[in-house]
Amino acid sequence: MGNLVVLAEYLRGAVADVTFELLGKARELGNLLGLSVEVVVVSDRQPDDVTGRLGPADRAWLILHPDLGEFQPEGMARALAAFLGERRPRLVLTSTTAFGMDVAAGIGGLLGWPVVAYCSALQVADRTIIATSQVYGGKVLVEVEIPDEPTVIAALPGSFPAPVGPSAPAAVEIWEPAGLQPARLRLRRWVEPEAADVDITRAEILVVAGRGIKSADNLPLIEELARALGGVVAASRPVVDAGWLPRNRQVGKSGLTVRPRLYLGLGVSGAPEHLEGMKDSQLIVAINTDRKAPIFDVAHYGVVGDIFEVVPALIERLRPEGH
């Protein structure tokens, strides 16, 4: 039986948080199943700074090829398929992110291995690995049995909330793919997001200002919280009508429909027209002074309280130590 292989999400010189989440989960499964944990990075040069911080895998691999220097989804999938095909690991772990979506199903397709995408839980029962995947917009969970052959798992980021921090792996071994077909993809450039063109439908975290913020003067406070959470400020209609925020920030029937991973409503009462545009958000948290506000009918968590007390206290706690 093969090992557990985590594909490191290595982009522009940094390893994504989700890689450490996967490593943490792989470690846990490895202990249960008696399997070792390996981690793989794809690059065109030896990135010392990164390979030195990939732990806590038992082995770390660097797939090295001059064509794989910059982001190269298909080529990466092909190189990884060649590497993994030789080794036949028990599980290949990656994530349902822009990186993992190219690679996971690609490897599965090239090698004929099963794929489980949108995985939100992995457990072992009687030495059988069981994966839970979120389907139908999160309305249904499907539980699948991983067959006795190598399987590719693409996990939803944030599913394994006990990430392990970066540490040094035992050793880094280099593998160079032979006979890789010439690249049919090429990265031309990276386009940085512009601050001006915020698209609230794509933000993963939305901090939504409602009528309860009372005045445009309070917007900086809301923006500060959004920054601290790594999110974007959106609004309900009254706030946009008042001209405090532009129309492209409006959630609801006459605005945009959003489905972020976190919707945090601040002083949003939850008119039906607003709920229509956000009720499918993955996690809805609302803070409002009125316990009867309809937003609490769709929220998963609620705080009955004054946003002007709770928000500054939250910002204080989110502020990195020493700053």
Binding site: P73, M101, A105, V135
Partner: peptide, 23 residues
């Protein structure tokens, strides 16, 4: 909504031996 077993674009790319890009 139903592709928990892998997204179509990479699978189709692999089946046709074409390059693919998701997202």
């Amino acid at each position: 909504a139903e592709d928990w077993d892998g997204q179509l674009a990479p699978l189709l790319g692999a089946a046709l031996d074409y390059p693919w890009v998701e997202v």
